[in-house]
């Protein structure tokens, strides 16, 4: 089996490598790929959209329809993980573990026993609990605010530098995941609950698609942000620029929320009780 697989894959590679002989040389600036469509973007994007970062301009405007569905794909991944994994019935645990914060004594509460949920002195811990690492916890506490600020910078600065909704959204989602890894799933879920994550995921894509639909209502085509100039006091070019910012924010909201949502479902196998 393995030798057959190896031979067939090697044959396929050989054929494909042979086929690259017909390609233009790598880096050739006269190749069709670098001349036919791309020249228009490079020469006109700034005039058309007032966005110096060409990747952002093409991503969110010329090919904004692709990007809308790209965001939808992320949402589908979140929905699919929830759909396939989430188990609402809580597992009947034999016992739950609580740790007395001051003394470090662990209480084992058997099933049916009274749990010290309201107490300030006890904190619930995972069944496979390892002692908290002070360095990791404090370091993540220090880093997370700056990471979140950086995420917002990346989102807002997508017009002028590498960045945008996807990148910033992923960084933002990663901060919450970092919190979940450094502490536990419950402390992350106290900041961003499952419901909030799910609502934000859909709302983010809805912002994007809603801006597109608003353009139809204002008399343009779907996602034609220049139609927004009728609503606000922008020139059509600036309307495109601000429309791009609007959809990038939608993308960032959706992506960050979906990353958190997927992490919750995968890390806890759908129970949302104890994470990794």
């Amino acid at each position: 089996m393995k030798s057959i697989a190896l031979t067939s894959v090697a044959l396929l590679c050989a054929v494909l490598i042979y086929s690259t002989m017909g390609f233009p040389a790598w880096g050739d600036s006269d190749s069709p790929a670098s001349t036919h469509v791309s020249d228009y973007y490079i020469e006109n994007a700034v005039n058309d959209t007032a966005v110096p970062n060409l990747v952002t301009a093409v991503l969110a405007d010329y090919r904004g329809y692709d990007t809308l569905f790209e965001t939808t794909v992320v949402l589908i991944a979140g929905l699919a993980c929830f759909f396939l994994l989430r188990r609402f019935k809580p597992r009947q645990p034999q016992h739950r573990l609580y740790r007395h914060i001051d003394t470090g004594i662990t209480l084992i509460i058997e099933q049916g026993g009274k749990e010290p949920t309201d107490s300030e002195e006890f904190v619930r811990i995972d069944s496979r609990w390892v002692p908290y690492d002070l360095v990791i916890q404090q370091a993540s506490c220090l880093v997370i605010p700056f990471l979140q600020l950086f995420a917002l910078y990346v989102i807002a600065h997508g017009h002028h530098s590498p960045g945008g909704g996807f990148q910033g959204g992923v960084i933002f989602g990663a901060t919450i995941i970092l919190m979940a890894i450094a502490n536990d799933l419950r402390s992350a879920a106290r900041r961003v609950s499952e419901r909030l994550g799910a609502l934000m995921a859909s709302a983010g894509v809805l912002i994007y698609a809603g801006i597109g639909a608003l353009c139809i209502l204002l008399g343009g085509s779907f996602l034609d942000y220049s139609a927004l100039s009728k609503l606000f006091a922008f020139t059509p070019v600036m309307a495109r620029s601000h429309g791009i910012l609007g959809v990038e924010i939608g993308v960032a909201v959706a992506v960050s929320a979906v990353m958190i949502w997927i992490y919750y479902n995968l890390a806890s196998a759908g129970r949302h009780e104890e994470g990794l």
């Binding site: 600036s29 790929a33 670098s34 001349t35 791309s38 020249d39 973007y41 490079i42 020469e43 006109n44 994007a45 700034v46 005039n47 007032a50 110096p52 970062n53 060409l54 990747v55 301009a57 093409v58 002028h160 530098s161 590498p162 070019v237 600036m238």
Partner: peptide, 22 residues
Amino acid sequence: PIIAHGHGAQGHGIRAADYMNP
């Protein structure tokens, strides 16, 4: 593929050969 000094819809004199294909 980021136009240098390209703020505010002033993209004149851009040569396509200077920037990568976005």
